[in-house]
């Protein structure tokens, strides 16, 4: 299976066009550390959003903290804007179980109460464990449970499918 050969840049352009239709250029964009932030950087530029890009690190909101602990180097979340009553585009690289998005939404709501949150992901793969769906998707992939898709970046962005050890 070699589905990673698709053109990421084309995908991003299509996503940006779709997102502009949904939210316009006044929306606040938040990328999830690290891969989601890389994707968000591209989308932010393509959409020419007016407000600076935010970065979310969901380590403190993970549901598996008491098993896996803290990341060795946690980069702090940085939302350089007020989220209250604003349209938010939340960006991640891969939507898999949905747990990351659950954690991200919880964190965003600790900064305030947005008007709406739209989810954009570069890759939507199977394996959902929570009722989470993307509004804008770059590419849908069907993978076996032991397969992982990993984004490398930030320049250039490349996707790789790996078998878990």
């Amino acid at each position: 299976m070699n589905e990673t050969n698709f053109d990421i840049n084309k995908c991003l352009q299509a996503m940006a066009a779709e997102l502009v239709k949904i939210t316009g250029q006044d929306a606040l964009m938040i990328g999830i550390h690290t891969g989601g932030y890389w994707v968000a950087q591209k989308l932010h530029e393509l959409m020419q959003l007016k407000k600076p890009l935010g970065q979310l690190n969901i380590t403190f909101y993970r549901d598996d903290f008491s098993q896996i602990g803290l990341h060795p180097r946690v980069k702090p979340s940085n939302l350089p804007f007020d989220v209250n009553n604003r349209e938010i585009i939340l960006v991640d690289d891969v939507l898999h179980t949905g747990r990351t998005i659950r954690a991200a939404l919880n964190e965003i709501f600790d900064y305030g109460r947005p008007k709406r949150v739209v989810l954009a992901v570069l890759v939507d793969r199977d394996g959902r464990e929570l009722p989470v769906a993307a509004d804008v998707t770059g590419k849908r992939l069907s993978l076996k449970p032991d397969e992982h898709v990993k984004l490398s970046g930030p320049e250039p962005l490349a996707l790789e499918i790996k078998k878990a050890e």
């Binding site: 403190f60 909101y61 903290f65 305030g112």
Partner: peptide
């Protein structure tokens, strides 16, 4: 510095 000065960790 946030609105809600808590994380659920």
């Amino acid at each position: 510095d946030r609105a809600i000065k808590k994380v659920p960790i």
